[in-house]
Structure formats: structure tokens, C-alpha cells
């Protein structure tokens, strides 16, 4: 059974003049546990909206989204929040580390919403996770004193600290240079793989997308497989227009 299953997902927004703007149209997607999937597409193609829906931050206007076979459309807000914290880990393009908190405090932050032992041991768990991403020595540094690559590694450690089943990464290398980006992606792929978590990456960078076992292209709100070299070339040209 798929871990995540999207069927006919559409999302529309109401514009100030009352008209409807379709963002996603009829998206079908199946994600299995531990799978690495990438989605490429130009700006405004609906990538972030799709990621928001996958991460239970937004609701589709039509279609069915099953999480572990359970429909998500009737979940109460509290349950959605709990599932979001327990099932998903987020990695953002701009890292979104909490300012003025040390690296270890940032990594421990998601565990504030955990229960029992996970909550009580949060600082130790966070320190261990920082060790895993090679930042044990920088645990007490605030983000302002870390490089971009280090900040993104802290963000990866934070995304993984609750042992999520799915990691949603939005342009994880977007704010990094090529070399650092490659290192970060290698780390992200390795860490999620070790955890057995599925990794869904949204990116402009086809070299990043190429790391995934399955690749998709999102264009005009429609999702389609990205398998041919020609398509890859088209996506590459998209990057220049973003």
C-alpha cells in the first residue's frame, strides 16, 4: 500500500475579482515508504501548493488524498497538526531556522510538540542528530554564526529529529552554491535513506532531481512523469526563467 496517495487532486484559489484561478489540476501521485521522488517545474507551476497539500498544510478543493490509506479531507485540525508533526519533516529553501536559538535548540524545537520520552529527551536527541549531520561541534552556535551549508544541515537534522516517514524538501539547495548544494543533497538522501523515510524534493536543479528514483514535472498545475532526456532539457531551460 502507498504511504501517500493523491488522486485527482485540484486546488483553486479565489481571486479578488471573484474569479477562480486553478493552481493544480487532476494530480495523481503515489509515494511508497522510503522512496525518493523529485518534482521539477517553473515558478508558479504549483509546486509549493502541492507540497503544502502533501504536508497537510493546505487542503485540495477536489480529489482524494490518502495518508496510510486514510482519507485526509475530514481530519480535524488538531489531528492534522499531530500527523504533520509525526509523519512529515520539512526542509525549506531559506532554512527557516529559529533566530537566536542555537543549532541544538533549533533541532530540538520539533520535539517540543512530541510527547513523553521524546519530549523529555529532546536536547540529547537533538545533539545526537547534529552529530549525524557532522555539526556536533557547532551545537551551541546560533544560525547567524553558521554558513549557509551548515544552516541547511541543521535544518536537515531538524527535519529528521522526529524520525518522520516523509521528508518534504522545498528547493533544499536553492540558497547554496553548487558544491555545497551537492553535499547537502547527498546528506539529505543518505539520512532519509538510513531512517527509511520517503523524500520528496522540489527543485529547479535537474542534477538534484536526477538523484531521485522517480522524477516528475509540474507544468500549469498538471503533474507528469519526467523520464526522457528531452524533458530534462526542457526543465533545465525552465531554471533560467525562474
Amino acid at each position: 500500500m502507498s504511504l501517500l496517495s493523491l488522486s485527482g487532486i485540484s486546488r483553486e484559489v479565489v481571486l479578488p475579482d471573484g474569479s477562480l484561478l486553478p493552481i493544480l489540476t487532476g494530480v495523481d501521485l503515489e509515494i511508497a515508504p522510503g522512496e525518493h521522488v523529485s518534482i521539477v517545474g517553473r515558478s508558479g507551476s504549483g509546486k509549493s501548493t502541492l507540497l503544502n497539500i502533501l504536508g497537510l498544510l493546505d487542503n485540495p478543493t477536489a480529489g482524494t488524498y490518502l495518508l496510510d490509506g486514510e482519507p485526509t479531507d475530514h481530519l480535524r485540525a488538531r489531528r492534522r497538526s499531530r500527523l504533520r508533526g509525526e509523519v512529515f519533516g520539512f526542509v525549506f529553501q531559506q532554512f527557516n531556522l529559529l533566530p537566536r536559538r542555537t543549532a541544538v535548540e533549533n533541532v530540538a524545537a520539533p520535539l517540543l510538540y512530541a510527547r513523553g520520552r521524546d519530549f523529555l529527551r529532546r536536547r540529547r536527541t537533538a545533539a545526537e542528530m547534529l552529530d549525524r549531520v557532522g555539526l556536533g561541534a557547532r551545537a551551541d552556535h546560533v544560525p547567524e554564526r553558521l554558513s549557509g551549508g551548515e544552516q541547511q544541515r541543521v535544518a536537515i537534522a531538524r527535519a529528521l529529529v522526529r524520525a518522520p516517514r516523509v521528508v518534504l524538501a522545498d528547493e533544499p539547495t536553492g540558497a547554496l552554491d553548487v558544491e555545497t548544494g551537492a553535499q547537502v543533497m547527498a546528506l539529505l538522501a543518505e539520512a532519509t535513506s538510513e531512517n527509511g523515510a520517503a523524500l520528496i524534493t522540489i527543485t529547479h536543479d535537474l542534477s538534484v532531481a536526477a538523484l531521485a528514483s522517480r522524477r516528475y514535472r509540474l507544468d500549469g498545475g498538471r503533474l507528469s512523469p519526467l523520464v526522457e532526456a528531452g524533458s530534462l532539457g526542457a526543465a533545465t531551460s525552465d531554471r533560467g526563467t525562474a
Binding site: 498544510l57 497538526s81 527557516n96 520539533p110 517540543l112 510538540y113
Partner: peptide, 15 residues
Amino acid sequence: REIGVRRSFGATSGR
């Protein structure tokens, strides 16, 4: 923004 990030960690409205 920080509140949004915390929501992504699973923070409920009540929290």
C-alpha cells in the same frame, strides 16, 4: 514566519 515554521513541526492552533 517563525509561527508558520512551528506549525510545520506539528504545533496545533491551541498550542
